[in-house]
Design a protein around this nucleic acid. Structure first.
Lengths: 136, 136
DNA sequence: ATCAATGTATTAGTTGACTAGAACACTGTC
DNA sequence: GACAGTGTTCTAGTCAACTAATACATTGAT
């Protein structure tokens, strides 16, 4: 038997963090792609396999995979498996994510320096989000 | 009888918006202060009065008032009433809020131009928030 | 056709945020 | 002290997000 047809990502879950498990899975897949550990066409752990590895319900894995599929990161084929989408651009992704982190960090720093609490920024931010979301 | 010892703010609630009522109340008080309609020492509508005016449970008003008190905007005195805190700086507040809105707007525009979805930005942002929150 | 491996769908339980109902405690006036 | 007006607290209901349990559908090899 082949010892695993798919890259085994060293998933690390923090059940205490309050961050939803499905989102942590998404982030780590994102990260693995960004780091080059996963490339277009690579197969991900099966829903059942990963759910066992993480001691999590299969549906939680499904949720993560589906969200990533919607965003074009993954491609799932019933009865076959889940794969990294061919459209995914691996190398630039790391830079992309770093830039986003920096952008957000800049805002927080700038706002903090101007005397705004994190809550205030969050409130404004969420208002922005809900406005965007209500239109379509 | 005096026709109302406190400024009657023209509260406008949008029950369809998905924005929590207590937060809308907070925002409008914030706005009234920023606009100069409310100044330090002014009494706000009583919990019961405002709850009747808005057809909302008193506890919802209490929630809004308490949050604002925690942030130093209001001062409540049991048996007396709720007042605008003397520390509140009214005139600069409008400018302050506009600036924050602009900061957040800039981030969203910048991120959008760089190809990030609102979701991506939100995810990064929430990670930031939860990191800040877990330390103390 | 059968079977094992895969993803899918349906339903339900858990939790936290939000709101509500009702009883309680404090203040000032009479 | 009684009372009306004020904020406070305790308890519970509602809803959405998240996770779980279970049964179902598809694929490819035998």
């Amino acid at each position: 038997m082949s010892p695993a047809p798919f890259s085994s990502i060293p998933f690390r879950l923090d059940m205490q963090s309050g961050v939803p498990v499905y989102r942590q899975i998404m982030d780590q897949i994102h990260g693995a792609i960004a780091a080059g550990a996963l490339r277009a066409g690579d197969q991900l752990p099966t829903v059942r396999q990963l759910s066992v590895d993480l001691s999590v319900n299969p549906n939680t894995v499904v949720r993560a995979y589906r969200e990533l599929e919607i965003r074009g990161v993954l491609t799932t084929q019933q009865g076959i498996g889940t794969f990294i989408s061919s459209k995914t651009v691996a190398p630039d992704e790391a830079e992309r994510q770093r830039k986003l982190t920096q952008m957000v960090g800049e805002l927080m720093a700038k706002a903090g320096a101007a005397g705004y609490t994190a809550e205030e920024v969050a409130t404004r931010f969420l208002e922005f989000m809900s406005e965007q979301r209500r239109k379509p």
